[in-house]
């Protein structure tokens, strides 16, 4: 059934992964407000757990375009697996 193919999605996802290193690095909406209203200094993220992939790059590799894209690939695979398994939680 050719109209049931999922390859257009994976192709689109692949293209978007290649674009991730070029995403804007400006502060996002909430960060902007936190800077402007002076509560950004309360950010404690990373104090509880510390991940080798923090901030979408791979520790040990320089933060460059390749490490961003590779981190994204890891994320894509995990999100796919987790969302599939969460939907079948009880039958796992």
């Amino acid at each position: 059934m050719p109209n049931k193919a999922s390859w257009p999605f994976w192709l689109l996802i692949g293209i978007l992964i290649l674009l991730t290193p070029f995403a804007s690095e400006l502060p996002d909406g909430l960060e902007r407000v936190a800077h402007d209203l002076g509560f950004m200094k309360q950010d404690k993220t990373g104090a509880i757990i510390s991940s080798p992939l923090a901030d979408y790059s791979i520790s040990g590799l320089a933060k460059n375009k390749l490490s961003t894209a590779l981190a994204c690939v890891v994320g894509v695979v995990l999100v796919f697996l987790i969302s599939c398994s969460i939907a079948k939680w009880r039958s796992l």
Partner: peptide, 10 residues
């Protein structure tokens, strides 16, 4: 659903 989640993540 998994593919959609992957798309939204990227």
């Amino acid at each position: 659903m998994g593919v959609m989640a992957a798309f939204v993540f990227v």
